[in-house]
Design a protein around this nucleic acid. Structure first.
Lengths: 385, 385
DNA sequence: TTGAAAGCGCTAACAA
DNA sequence: TTGTTAGCGCTTTCAA
């Protein structure tokens, strides 16, 4: 009768119980056990109680894998991103500090506002995705791919989930296309979607870089009346920077300023590079405003200005882009464009769920609105007079 | 021969391909397909190539669930925590701000250093867990249980993973015990493990609250020579606070100060409550040092002191506990005890993996070392003279 | 209301 | 080196 006649009797210790064990103990069939767990109302009260008791007594927990296999869906959504590079070693406890019971005492007065833990960006996306997934009744599986094994991970995860949200350039396009044949894939924050892009057919969710930059630049040029602007650009191959430049140009066009009137220097999205670039610029001349491609380079710009003894915003306005937390604590606080990171995660999950519900729908391309945060480095109105 | 003779022919569109489809197309058996994927060296070069081609052509991605079921292990570790309460609504885009193409412009100059996004704590634990899981070859499944559904979630996740790490008091003890019968469960940050605790037999990883507080208080009393201390306590039922108080007392005992010499006021771990409590205290007298049960209440204490025109650290030393990021940006920066959040997550995963490797080992109880970060609010040496 | 039985897609003996 | 086959634990018709 029972499929496992010797279960837990001949072998070493009791194995983890299955529906069969519960059914045996409750004196019902496995179908009834399944019903009790999935459609309790379809089972007579007393039977249900017997089954539930057996579940309790046995410590039975249904196998999600078997369920998923039989039910042809997992109830899990996967989230892949590029990984916390550099974190692997960074947060390893310092050698010797782990001495038994020993508490290390550190003079931490030197550490300035510039420091911050890496990749907060993804943390927030992740959090948003997590929240949304659970609200929709899905579990979330996370994979931060590091190194060349990324593809392996994604492939691995793809087989375990109903749908996948992948941050731009986490894995090779080929793999993504391959995987997308099997399940819904949503690409996050990859706006540079051209016709020839192999990912062109996939759903995507991104942030409205161009509109954000346009609004910010409009504020600088029209709101503050500044015409002497320099743009501290990102890496030439960055789609994000390309979009932000589009926004910049759009704003210049709109206010009737020649694009050539706003020269670029190259900050490469990095604090040190931007500092160097701006230092070099300042050796030649001092513009009234520095519009930076991201917050990191804005920090670098402020470093350079500070070193030259120039005041922000008194002598030079500085703006960033991203809305990193650190910008709230700089001196002065940094005007920036905040990206809705958590919302990005949520939107991604929503997109996956929507696709699951309607596989035939046209590819989705969502743009999340950004928010310009005016802070002291480039205030709402000119306060210098 | 093939198990699915009509696959993709009679039904609507091609179904997602399985080993059978790949085997058919490559002209081999399913076993060979499986081998190519799992032990490639056990297959002749030419055969392997044929199979791989078929995989490519078909867009085949192996089902993780079927694998897990057949292989009796999932390769996934679960992480459960109490959830980002309050976040659900908080990060919802403000009504109206999402207008198509509209970019909201906000005067953000008012928002002080006190503000910060909630639950950064878990983000870091999560990140640590993710990193470690990945290094060990496991995927990570995340569940932030919210509301009464927590138990359901955990039960659900338990069936999908090889092992589980659960933050203290995320779910009911009963459920945890139930689940622990089936798979390894590691409890995080629940140090208050008494003999009668139902969770007593489980592995656990926590932070050395007592030692941290003891080191900090020793610094205040012995290092700075302060004897007039008030403790701003947490909620009475908090195991964390209890541990920190133990550390406090231990330090007092060690330096020969009567415990009664250090009165308590109740801050309840919250900024506002602590501010109220300290305000009331200051109406009576001004101690030389306020040792607070956590960072939040330290912020509240500083609020109260500031309102009274008292200087930190000139008039009163203030210390916190937790190592929240925000403490680096307060005026003055906050001396605190940093908990190794990311390391907590990693240690949890390590514990699960260890338990998986040796189910018979004695229950593990790991204590992670903390770090005292001396900053201006209670500096390494008395600089006021 | 309950039970019998056929898979879900894969792995892992065991044979060949 | 490759194929056959028996499950893994569950859901789900279809009958009873």
């Amino acid at each position: 009768m029972a499929r496992h006649p010797t279960r837990g009797e001949t072998t070493d210790g009791p194995k983890t119980p299955t529906v069969y064990d519960v059914a045996d103990r409750a004196g019902v069939s496995i179908a009834t056990v399944s019903r009790v767990l999935r459609t309790p109302d379809a089972v007579r009260e007393t039977t249900r109680a017997r089954v539930l008791d057996a579940v309790r007594d046995l410590g039975y927990v249904p196998s999600g894998n078997a369920r998923a296999l039989a039910g042809r869906k997992t109830g899990v959504i996967g989230l892949c991103f590029p990984g916390h590079d550099g974190l692997e070693e960074a947060d390893r406890p310092a050698p010797g500090s782990a001495a038994a019971g020993g508490v290390r005492i550190v003079d931490d007065r030197r550490r300035g506002a510039g420091w911050q833990s890496p990749n907060l960006y993804f943390d927030e996306v992740l959090r948003g995705a997590e929240v949304e997934a659970w609200r929709r009744g899905f579990a979330l599986m996370v994979a931060a791919g590091r190194g060349p094994a990324r593809d392996v991970i994604v492939n691995d995860i793809a087989g375990r989930v109903d749908g996948l949200a992948v941050l731009a350039r986490t894995v090779s396009d080929d793999l993504l296309v391959h995987v997308a044949r099997r399940l819904p894939v949503v690409v996050l924050a990859d706006a540079a979607r051209t016709g020839t892009n192999p990912l062109a057919g996939l759903d995507q969710v991104s942030v409205d870089n161009a509109a954000g930059m346009a609004a910010l630049v409009t504020h600088v040029v029209r709101g503050l009346g500044v015409r002497d602007v320099v743009y501290v650009a990102g890496p030439p191959d960055s789609p994000d920077d390309a979009e932000r430049q589009r926004g910049l140009f759009a704003a210049l066009d709109a206010v009737g300023l020649d694009r050539a009137a706003v020269p670029h220097v190259r900050g490469d999205f990095r604090r040190d590079t931007a500092e160097a670039a701006v230092t070099e610029l300042l050796a030649r001349r001092v513009p009234r405003a520095l519009v930076c491609a991201n917050d990191q380079s804005a920090l670098g710009a402020m470093d350079a200005l500070g070193r030259r003894g120039l005041s922000v915003p008194g002598d030079v306005y500085v703006t960033g882009f991203d809305g990193l937390d650190v910008g709230r604590f700089t001196q002065p606080p940094l005007t920036t464009v905040a990206q809705p990171m958590a919302e990005l995660g949520r939107a991604a999950v929503r997109a996956v769920v929507a696709r699951l519900a309607d596989p035939a729908a046209a590819p989705l391309s969502a743009r999340l609105p950004v928010e310009v945060l005016l802070r002291e480095s480039c205030p709402p109105v000119d306060t210098s007079m």
